[in-house]
Computed example of a mutant assay.
Amino acid sequence: MEKTGRSVDEFVAQVSPAKRRRDAETLITMMREVSGREPALWSGSIIGFGACHYAYPTGTEGDMPILAFAPRKASTTVYLDSADAHADALAALGPHTTGASCLYMKDLESVDLGVLRRVLEETQRRTAGDELPGATITVLD
Protein backbone atom coordinates (compact mmCIF):
# COMPACT_ATOMS: atom_id res chain seq x y z
CA MET A 1 0.00 0.00 0.00
CA GLU A 2 1.27 3.49 -0.76
CA LYS A 3 0.41 7.06 0.17
CA THR A 4 -1.11 8.80 -2.82
CA GLY A 5 -0.22 12.40 -1.98
CA ARG A 6 -3.82 13.43 -2.69
CA SER A 7 -5.58 15.81 -0.32
CA VAL A 8 -7.55 14.11 2.44
CA ASP A 9 -9.84 17.15 2.74
CA GLU A 10 -10.66 17.11 -0.98
CA PHE A 11 -11.31 13.36 -0.87
CA VAL A 12 -13.62 13.63 2.18
CA ALA A 13 -15.54 16.52 0.59
CA GLN A 14 -16.52 14.12 -2.22
CA VAL A 15 -17.57 11.21 0.01
CA SER A 16 -21.22 10.22 -0.26
CA PRO A 17 -23.69 9.75 1.20
CA ALA A 18 -23.55 12.72 3.58
CA LYS A 19 -23.73 10.40 6.61
CA ARG A 20 -20.54 8.66 5.49
CA ARG A 21 -18.83 12.06 5.05
CA ARG A 22 -19.91 13.07 8.56
CA ASP A 23 -18.56 9.79 9.94
CA ALA A 24 -15.27 10.31 8.07
CA GLU A 25 -14.86 13.73 9.68
CA THR A 26 -15.55 12.22 13.13
CA LEU A 27 -13.03 9.42 12.56
CA ILE A 28 -10.37 11.83 11.30
CA THR A 29 -10.69 13.84 14.50
CA MET A 30 -10.65 10.72 16.70
CA MET A 31 -7.75 9.00 14.92
CA ARG A 32 -5.74 12.24 14.88
CA GLU A 33 -6.18 12.46 18.66
CA VAL A 34 -5.43 8.77 19.27
CA SER A 35 -2.41 8.61 16.95
CA GLY A 36 -0.96 12.09 17.34
CA ARG A 37 -0.47 12.00 13.56
CA GLU A 38 -2.00 13.76 10.56
CA PRO A 39 -4.10 11.85 8.02
CA ALA A 40 -2.81 10.80 4.62
CA LEU A 41 -4.65 9.22 1.71
CA TRP A 42 -3.45 5.69 0.93
CA SER A 43 -4.24 3.60 -2.14
CA GLY A 44 -6.86 6.05 -3.32
CA SER A 45 -9.56 5.66 -0.67
CA ILE A 46 -7.99 4.67 2.66
CA ILE A 47 -7.36 7.43 5.17
CA GLY A 48 -4.40 6.44 7.32
CA PHE A 49 -2.48 7.80 10.28
CA GLY A 50 1.21 7.02 10.66
CA ALA A 51 3.02 4.35 8.70
CA CYS A 52 4.75 1.07 9.39
CA HIS A 53 6.46 -1.67 7.45
CA TYR A 54 5.35 -5.26 8.06
CA ALA A 55 7.21 -8.44 7.19
CA TYR A 56 6.08 -12.05 7.57
CA PRO A 57 8.42 -15.06 7.64
CA THR A 58 6.82 -16.15 4.33
CA GLY A 59 8.45 -13.18 2.61
CA THR A 60 5.25 -11.13 2.35
CA GLU A 61 5.96 -7.53 3.29
CA GLY A 62 4.78 -4.01 2.65
CA ASP A 63 3.84 -0.68 4.13
CA MET A 64 0.55 0.21 5.77
CA PRO A 65 -0.93 2.88 8.03
CA ILE A 66 -0.88 2.26 11.78
CA LEU A 67 -4.53 3.36 12.07
CA ALA A 68 -6.84 3.60 9.07
CA PHE A 69 -10.38 3.65 7.75
CA ALA A 70 -12.18 3.87 4.44
CA PRO A 71 -15.52 5.61 3.94
CA ARG A 72 -17.38 3.29 1.56
CA LYS A 73 -20.90 3.78 0.22
CA ALA A 74 -22.39 0.84 2.15
CA SER A 75 -20.49 1.40 5.41
CA THR A 76 -17.33 2.78 6.92
CA THR A 77 -14.52 0.25 7.21
CA VAL A 78 -12.10 0.66 10.12
CA TYR A 79 -8.95 -1.43 9.86
CA LEU A 80 -7.92 -3.20 13.06
CA ASP A 81 -4.99 -5.38 14.04
CA SER A 82 -7.49 -8.23 14.52
CA ALA A 83 -11.24 -8.16 15.09
CA ASP A 84 -10.96 -11.23 17.33
CA ALA A 85 -8.49 -9.42 19.60
CA HIS A 86 -11.22 -6.87 20.38
CA ALA A 87 -14.22 -9.20 20.62
CA ASP A 88 -15.13 -8.21 24.19
CA ALA A 89 -14.98 -4.47 23.48
CA LEU A 90 -16.80 -4.83 20.16
CA ALA A 91 -19.64 -6.64 21.93
CA ALA A 92 -20.36 -3.31 23.65
CA LEU A 93 -19.85 -1.11 20.56
CA GLY A 94 -23.31 -1.16 19.05
CA PRO A 95 -24.42 -2.08 15.51
CA HIS A 96 -21.50 -3.35 13.42
CA THR A 97 -20.11 -6.35 11.58
CA THR A 98 -16.54 -7.59 11.35
CA GLY A 99 -14.16 -9.40 9.05
CA ALA A 100 -10.72 -10.76 9.99
CA SER A 101 -9.26 -7.32 10.64
CA CYS A 102 -12.08 -5.05 9.51
CA LEU A 103 -14.82 -3.33 11.47
CA TYR A 104 -17.83 -2.22 9.41
CA MET A 105 -20.21 0.45 10.71
CA LYS A 106 -23.14 2.04 8.90
CA ASP A 107 -23.61 4.99 11.27
CA LEU A 108 -21.21 6.26 13.94
CA GLU A 109 -24.12 7.99 15.68
CA SER A 110 -25.45 4.54 16.63
CA VAL A 111 -22.24 3.21 18.21
CA ASP A 112 -20.45 3.95 21.48
CA LEU A 113 -17.60 6.28 20.46
CA GLY A 114 -15.83 5.66 23.79
CA VAL A 115 -15.65 1.95 23.01
CA LEU A 116 -14.47 2.70 19.47
CA ARG A 117 -11.73 5.00 20.82
CA ARG A 118 -10.48 2.26 23.18
CA VAL A 119 -10.38 -0.24 20.31
CA LEU A 120 -8.39 2.24 18.20
CA GLU A 121 -6.00 2.94 21.08
CA GLU A 122 -5.39 -0.78 21.54
CA THR A 123 -4.95 -1.34 17.79
CA GLN A 124 -2.36 1.44 17.68
CA ARG A 125 -0.56 0.09 20.74
CA ARG A 126 -0.41 -3.44 19.33
CA THR A 127 0.56 -2.39 15.80
CA ALA A 128 3.17 0.22 16.73
CA GLY A 129 4.42 -2.08 19.50
CA ASP A 130 5.18 -4.88 17.02
CA GLU A 131 2.54 -7.19 18.50
CA LEU A 132 0.88 -8.42 15.31
CA PRO A 133 0.89 -12.22 15.35
CA GLY A 134 3.46 -13.65 12.96
CA ALA A 135 4.65 -10.28 11.63
CA THR A 136 7.59 -8.00 12.36
CA ILE A 137 6.58 -4.34 12.42
CA THR A 138 8.85 -1.33 11.97
CA VAL A 139 7.25 2.07 12.59
CA LEU A 140 8.16 4.52 9.79
CA ASP A 141 6.36 7.65 11.01
Rank of each mutant, 00 (worst) to 15 (best):
Glu2Met: 14
Glu2Gly: 09
Thr4Leu: 00
Gly5His: 03
Arg6Ile: 00
Arg6Ala: 15
Arg6Asn: 13
Ser7Thr: 03
Val8Ala: 02
Val8Met: 00
Glu10Asp: 04
Glu10Cys: 03
Glu10Thr: 03
Gln14Tyr: 00
Val15Met: 01
Val15Gly: 00
Ser16Asp: 11
Ser16Phe: 09
Pro17Ser: 00
Pro17Thr: 01
Pro17Trp: 00
Ala18Ser: 14
Lys19Gln: 15
Arg20Ile: 03
Arg21Cys: 05
Arg22Glu: 12
Arg22Gly: 04
Leu27Thr: 06
Ile28Ala: 01
Ile28Thr: 04
Met30Pro: 07
Met31His: 11
Met31Leu: 11
Met31Trp: 02
Arg32Asn: 06
Glu33Ser: 14
Ser35Thr: 05
Arg37Glu: 14
Arg37Asn: 14
Glu38Cys: 12
Pro39Asp: 01
Pro39Tyr: 01
Ala40Pro: 06
Ala40Met: 10
Leu41His: 04
Leu41Thr: 07
Leu41Phe: 05
Ser43Asn: 14
Ser43Pro: 03
Gly44Val: 07
Gly44Trp: 04
Ser45Val: 12
Ser45Trp: 04
Ser45Thr: 14
Gly48Ala: 10
Gly48Lys: 00
Phe49Asp: 05
Phe49Ile: 10
His53Val: 07
His53Lys: 15
Tyr56Lys: 12
Pro57Leu: 06
Thr58Pro: 10
Thr58Cys: 12
Thr58Val: 10
Thr60Tyr: 13
Glu61Val: 13
Glu61Tyr: 13
Gly62Trp: 11
Asp63Val: 15
Asp63Ala: 12
Pro65Ser: 11
Leu67Ser: 01
Ala70Lys: 03
Pro71His: 05
Arg72Cys: 04
Lys73Trp: 07
Ala74Pro: 04
Ala74Asn: 05
Ser75Pro: 04
Val78Cys: 07
Leu80Gly: 08
Leu80Gln: 10
Ala83Asn: 08
Asp84Val: 11
Ala85Lys: 12
Ala85Ser: 11
Ala85His: 09
Ala87Ser: 14
Ala87Tyr: 03
Ala89Val: 04
Leu90Met: 12
Leu90Trp: 01
Ala91Met: 07
Leu93Ala: 03
Gly94Met: 01
Pro95Ala: 02
His96Ser: 06
Thr97His: 04
Thr97Asp: 12
Thr97Asn: 10
Gly99Phe: 08
Ala100Met: 11
Ser101Phe: 01
Ser101Gly: 11
Cys102Leu: 04
Leu103Ile: 07
Leu103Met: 08
Tyr104Thr: 00
Tyr104Pro: 02
Met105Asn: 02
Asp107Leu: 10
Asp107Tyr: 06
Leu113Thr: 06
Leu113Asp: 06
Val115Phe: 02
Arg117Ile: 02
Arg118Pro: 03
Val119Met: 00
Leu120Arg: 08
Leu120Asn: 09
Thr123Gln: 06
Gln124Ala: 15
Arg125Ile: 08
Ala128Ser: 15
Ala128Trp: 03
Gly129Trp: 10
Gly129Lys: 10
Gly129His: 10
Glu131Asp: 08
Leu132Ile: 15
Gly134Ser: 01
Gly134Ile: 07
Ala135Cys: 12
Ala135Arg: 15
Thr136His: 14
Thr138Ser: 14
Leu140Ala: 13
